[in-house]
Design a binder for these strands. Structure first.
Length: 353
DNA sequence: TATTCGTGGGG
DNA sequence: TCCCCAAGAAT
């Protein structure tokens, strides 16, 4: 028993969101633009993505342009958006697609490309190529769980929910408009079937929603309890050369903030650093100013960083081991959010925390 | 199956 | 203030 696809599509025709990566009704979107937006939108809000999306399209109007760019430039343009493996995979995927002469049109072929998983493959197939598949993201998961009153907790219930969701497009109306149907599900989840306080009264699917009829829609999907976020500590050193440059090094190519630039600093460990201990990791022996601390919350741990700042006396950079990095203008670097906070902290008065 | 992997905004 | 979460993928 599937809900009324026609009702959802009528609602979508009136209420659909206008977004920069969406083509006008009846027009085929550029697969490159669809792919780019889908990668950026993974675990990221529409509001946060829009500016980045526009900047990428300006710098790289085609997949070939992106494929030919140095990874460093891509990371610089991605800096601040988070989940930097996406940027590395974006670059690798652009090269593959460029070699192939474009993006493949089937789910199975799309799945072989870096950074494209079960959701994104179906999103691209449906939106860019009109394949009748249902991309199951957080929105569709929530809509489905409520529609069928599925009370088993995530993430264990994920595959069962996806199985149900795969049939949402069974109606002929949905089969005829795969791109609109997929995006209608997104918009329904984003504007009506919201995580908290869903607007069931105006929902085009309210009459067939079991969660609504049982009065439990807002409580779905049930989620398993999360575990506590550990705390880590570190110290970083903002060293300027007096010519507008900052000492920066590149993090290892994989893992946390992989490939991004950072000021040299200590390891991030579970115990606090004594000042003397932290200073022993400084790139240069000088009078370091304690600029206070920066707190940054990652998905799986909270980080407290002490920021030290100093300006290099003229003509002393020869004594700095190159493992600490090179002096570069910060504007040209690929700086993560937490490292931007450190540089900002170095410029502030300590008391203004 | 469970972890790792960012960041900013909203309630 | 704190907690939740957002068009998930890779390992």
């Amino acid at each position: 028993m599937t809900p009324d696809a026609s009702a959802l599509l009528r609602w979508y025709d009136t209420h659909r969101r206008i977004l920069p990566w969406r083509s006008l009704p009846g027009q085929r979107p550029d697969p490159y633009a669809v792919w780019l937006s889908e990668i950026m939108l993974q675990q990221t809000t529409v509001k946060a993505v829009i500016d980045y999306y526009n900047r990428f399209l300006t710098h790289y109007p085609t997949v070939q342009g992106l494929a030919n760019a140095p990874l460093e430039d891509v990371l610089h343009l991605w800096a601040g958006l988070g989940y930097y493996a996406r940027a590395r995979n974006l670059h690798a995927c652009a090269r593959r697609a460029s070699e192939l002469g474009g993006f493949p049109e089937t789910v199975d072929a799309l799945l072989t490309l870096p950074g494209i998983g079960a959701y994104t493959a179906r999103a691209i197939a449906a939106i860019a190529f009109g394949q009748p598949v249902v991309p199951v993201d957080g929105n569709v998961e929530r809509v489905t769980a409520r529609l069928y009153a599925m009370e088993d907790p995530l993430p264990a219930s994920r595959s069962r929910i996806a199985q149900q969701a795969a049939h949402l497009n069974a109606d002929a109306e949905a089969q005829a408009r795969p791109s609109d149907f997929a995006q209608a599900l997104f918009d329904l989840g984003a504007t009506i079937c919201t995580p908290r306080a869903p607007s069931c009264l105006t929902c085009p699917w309210r009459t067939s929603c079991i969660g609504q009829s049982r009065g439990i829609a807002a409580s779905l999907p049930v989620k398993a309890p999360k575990q506590a976020r550990p705390v880590r500590y570190g110290a970083h050193f903002v060293l300027r050369d007096g010519k507008g440059n900052v000492l920066l090094r590149q993090r290892p190519p994989k893992g946390l903030l992989g490939g991004m630039d950072e000021c040299p600093g200590t390891e991030w460990r579970s115990t606090r650093w004594a000042e003397e201990d932290a200073l022993s990791h400084a790139p240069f022996l000088t009078q370091w100013q304690d600029r206070g601390t920066v707190t940054h919350v990652f998905t799986h741990f909270t980080l407290h960083l002490t920021v030290y700042e100093a300006t290099l006396p003229a003509g002393h950079n020869a004594g700095i081991n190159q493992s600490f990095g090179t002096f570069r203008p910060a504007e040209r670097a690929a700086l993560s959010g937490v490292m931007k906070k450190c540089l900002l902290r170095a410029d502030q008065d300590v008391e203004t925390t």
